[in-house]
Design a protein around this nucleic acid. Structure first.
Lengths: 349, 349
DNA sequence: TGGCGCATCCAAAGCGCTTTGGCAGGACAC
DNA sequence: GTGTCCTGCCAAAGCGCTTTGGATGCGCCA
């Protein structure tokens, strides 16, 4: 069933039927009802291809999911972000186009999406410290929102980000308050913007107490469970292991926990662990007292807000770039406790 | 730059340019080269909307991601499956359309995709024991592949599935061989087809030794970390706790492990844990000796194969329904050991 | 009564591509 | 020299929608 057939059924012109369906005023209200009802009855929806062609916009948002070739990993954080964003798209009648590509093809993919007119805008994930994609989007004249920021990029652009620096400054501050001075950090890939901000936050906190970050205690990699495990293991094998560890995601934290338990140690008592918690739906850090002490910020909410911002940008392209800076909340869980020295001090006091 | 402009640049008709670009034979090879080069130089790609309209197919595959309203969860397993499938789509020039919807809107979404002609085919995730979507797809005349199967559905259809029954029969068999008789099962949602098959497999194994599955020891829910935690906790609080536990995913297994360590117990020594391992990229169960004893089958590979099957079905709609039944491999890790009775027996022997 | 304005509808063009159905011209056979 | 076939190109229709630019007819006012 297409427009033409439907309009013939109704004894109306395609023009009128189209206007009736799209809510234009120049059609009698009774006719509109008839049309609406007939469309419903005949199960009619406008053909997507024809609509895109005629309207010149495609009602589609692009997300590109780069899959690194060697390890072929796709971050579960992504799933929650997509869920948050995708729900918003659906509400507004937008489709979500997901392109899975090898790392090195990512730029070509954005170019392709733009020139094929396959999307009205894109959402950029996981920006690097210096991310060329931002410049690329401007060149391609594609509306976009970045989830995160890119420190080095000069121009202004839309973004939604967590205040990573502040969050990790506070996180490290708490550990310092507990008497920890030898603090490790299991962080994300070094060229990721969030990772560099978090490290800066930690550095700030330590610096304010006159402590320098020890390079041996800072790890950078894709944040898998195994990465958390092996990092913690290596820490424990050091002559002078850290007494506290920051972890950039709950997933490596699970691995870190495994390493501790393999070594017969436990969180809080032996080593304090403080994580960034994206509030992943399958890994809720909750309960009377949450398992992990954490700086938390829901990645699903971030997805939702990013989507909202993008849709607004598309609707109103001349709008000034928007920014949302989310503050993470620091909640105390079961994974942190006083440093050994502090513990002795408390006892004797 | 569109076809018309490009053809004017070249002093050719749009027809010839189109044919040259699409590899039709009735164009001189030298002309084709000229066209190809000009297209490249002017950065031309056919407009997606126009192409869909003219061709009558949209080069797009649909995936629907239902998000249950109450708990808003999206399974990380999904991310890996998508990665496997999406890569295959991209290779064949297909786009992936992802729709995030509330559970109750799922059927309406498929209908909508079909009547808008937004997709050439769909991939169905997480089939229930009796899944109405299969009938729906036939009604809508949409090519489809099911990742998993639906036991009750009579008609034939395309599917890619793991031999869940066999896998869990073997898994339970191993535990029995180790002397366990009181075996629990932390399974997926009861109405999921995979969950019912796995339970059946376990039941078969126990039955062959004259043991009946104890209902109190079987849990069904969405497979989050917390679910694994609380289930294991409840098991441990029983007057007669199980000595071994099957877990349908590595994620609840992580929770189960946490419950054990909270109780000062450990896997293998105190309670044997045997999981189904989807080989998630962020949760690789590997190492010299893997952490978990597991029946393993890569969900990413399943995604890849499902995509392949769907593309073939679209290319050749009259083909007989295809089936792929994957066998999981059973690998021994650190999480299983002999039952207490067996342990005593071994000692005294 | 004539004219104006408004409400309601429609014909046709246009979006950018593919595809059908030629058409010219050269090669070749007879 | 005529007819046939093949190569290489093109004009035009058509995909299903939106949108421009009228048309028609009616009520209403002067």
């Amino acid at each position: 069933m297409n427009l033409k057939e439907l309009s013939q059924h109704l004894g109306l012109s395609p023009t009128t039927v189209s206007r009736a369906l799209n809510g234009y005023p120049e059609v009698n209200e009774r006719t509109r009802q008839r049309v609406l009802e007939a469309a419903e009855r005949h199960n009619y929806s406008p053909n997507s291809g024809a609509k895109r062609l005629a309207e010149g916009r495609v009602m589609t948002i692009g997300h590109v999911l780069p899959v690194s070739n060697e390890h072929e990993m796709v971050n579960p954080v992504f799933a929650d972000f997509i869920a948050g964003a995708g729900k918003r798209y659906a509400e507004e009648g937008y489709d979500l186009l997901l392109t899975v590509v090898r790392d090195e093809d990512e730029v070509a993919t954005y170019r392709d999406l733009a020139k094929r007119r396959a999307v009205d805008g894109v959402l950029l994930h996981g920006p690097k410290v210096n991310d060329r994609r931002i410049e690329l989007m401007k060149e391609l004249n594609l509306p976009f929102v970045v989830h995160g920021r890119s420190s080095v990029v000069g121009e202004d652009y839309n973004w939604v980000d967590v205040n990573n620096r502040r969050a990790f400054e506070r996180a490290a501050g708490l550990l310092l308050d507990l008497g920890h001075t030898r603090i490790a950090f299991i962080n994300g890939l070094a060229d990721m913007d969030f990772a560099s901000r978090r490290l800066a936050g930690m550095r700030d906190a330590l610096a304010s107490r006159g402590i320098e970050v020890c390079d041996d205690l800072v790890r950078h990699a894709e944040m898998s469970e195994n990465y958390g495990y092996s990092s913690m293991r290596e820490f424990l094998e050091m002559p002078e292991p850290p007494t506290a560890v920051l972890v950039s995601s709950i997933i490596p934290a699970i691995g870190a926990r495994r390493a501790l338990s393999d070594a017969g140690l436990s969180m809080a008592d032996d080593v304090s662990v403080l994580i960034h918690d994206d509030d992943l739906s399958y890994f809720r850090n909750e309960g009377d007292i949450p398992t992990y002490t954490a700086v938390r910020s829901s990645v699903r909410d971030a997805g939702h807000m990013s989507a909202e911002m993008l849709l607004q940008t598309i609707a109103n392209p001349d709008k000034e770039p928007q920014h949302v800076l989310l503050e993470a909340e620091l909640t105390i869980g079961q994974s942190t406790g006083p440093a050994p020295a502090m513990r002795r001090f408390l006892k004797q006091g």
